[in-house]
């Protein structure tokens, strides 16, 4: 027991140190590396808290996909011809006000978190009691896909909106064209080797993570992130062309998840108790079907987010 506490204290100290480093370091590249390490440490924290579902998501999204996204952003900043013109650096008064505002937010958060007395109110017993009705064994998937399905649906829409936001940064001439990922035609042999060897394994792992999500830690987001990583790897190595963002199949893959979710949700009004309700006899197959569609959409959305806005016109 004491060994566990020692590990927890060490882990907490490491997370805090990593967070500080990420904020304080001057170099953007070093900050991103720090952020990736921070995400992986945070995943370990979630494992220690027995929240393996969250740990998987944190490692895949917080450490993995966000890390690549930020690395590419730093790379794009370095490639830019002229450095960003921010005007004169902020004066001492501006800095003091910013520091005060940040300190006030931190103090407010500390006050709220430390002020909670007793155990926080929880719906966990209620969720556990009704889990058998969904046919699932993983309570996290039950909450995400059945009890709080509306939140999950909106989350997927937010993901799509984020991608639209990225695409809206594309130059006029490149709209509907191809994003650039990696250095086309100049990928190293090592990268090509890795991109040939890893995806067969990764695709199986991604689908496995989705499938076991019904009964054990895993699910659409984690599986989708693994699949996205495999596609990104293949595109970076030049083994798979980056699709033009105007392609109909790409657009269809992006929206099929939210659309399937919405369709089942609306059907719930007629064949079950209401919007986003499942008929008890078909709850599990319906949830798995939605998850499969969502996984595809998440994988494509994440990969296209990493690929970024289109840079060159491509045949639509």
């Amino acid at each position: 027991m004491t060994a566990g506490i020692a590990v927890d204290i060490g882990l907490a100290a490491l997370v805090a140190a990593m967070a500080l480093w990420t904020i304080l370091v001057r170099d953007a590249y070093a900050a991103v590396i720090g952020f990736i390490g921070y995400g992986l440490l945070l995943a370990l924290v979630w494992v220690r808290l027995d929240a393996v579902d969250v740990a998987l998501t944190e490692a895949a999204i917080g450490g993995g996909v966000t890390g690549v996204l930020l690395l590419r952003a730093v790379g794009a900043l370095h490639r830019g011809a002229a450095p960003l013109e921010d005007g004169p650096p902020p004066g001492p008064a501006t800095r003091r006000i910013a520091a005060l505002a940040c300190a006030a937010v931190a103090a407010g958060l500390a006050f709220v978190v430390l002020g909670v007395s007793g155990p926080a109110p929880t719906l966990a017993p209620l969720a556990a009691e009704h889990l058998p009705a969904t046919g699932l064994k993983n309570p996290v998937t039950g909450v995400l896909l059945a009890f709080r399905a509306l939140d999950t649906l909106l989350e997927k829409v937010v993901l799509l909106l984020a991608l639209i936001g990225i695409w809206s940064l594309s130059p006029d001439g490149a709209w509907g064209g191809r994003p650039t990922l990696g250095r086309p035609g100049r990928a190293s042999d090592t990268l090509r080797f890795l991109a040939q060897l890893l995806p067969p394994v990764g695709i199986v792992v991604g689908i496995h993570v989705l499938w076991v999500g019904a009964n054990a830690p895993g699910g659409a987001f984690q599986g989708g992130a693994v699949l996205a990583a495999m596609w990104i790897l293949a595109m970076m190595a030049g083994l798979s062309p980056v699709p033009a963002i105007g392609r109909p199949w790409l657009r269809a893959a992006l929206v099929i998840g939210p659309l399937a979710f919405l369709a089942v949700g609306v059907a719930g009004i007629f064949i079950a108790d209401g919007f986003l309700a499942y008929p008890p006899a078909f709850a599990k197959p319906l949830i798995l079907a939605i998850e499969a569609a969502i996984t595809l959409s998440i994988a494509v959305t994440l990969a296209m987010m990493v690929a970024g806005p289109p840079q060159r016109p491509g045949a639509p």
């Binding site: 190293s188 090592t190 990268l191 080797f193 890795l194 060897l197 890893l198 394994v201």
Partner: peptide, 16 residues
Amino acid sequence: LLVQLAGASVAQLIAR
């Protein structure tokens, strides 16, 4: 095996 593959490949990429 996966960590071996990732470690060896990434080491090559970073070295390059």
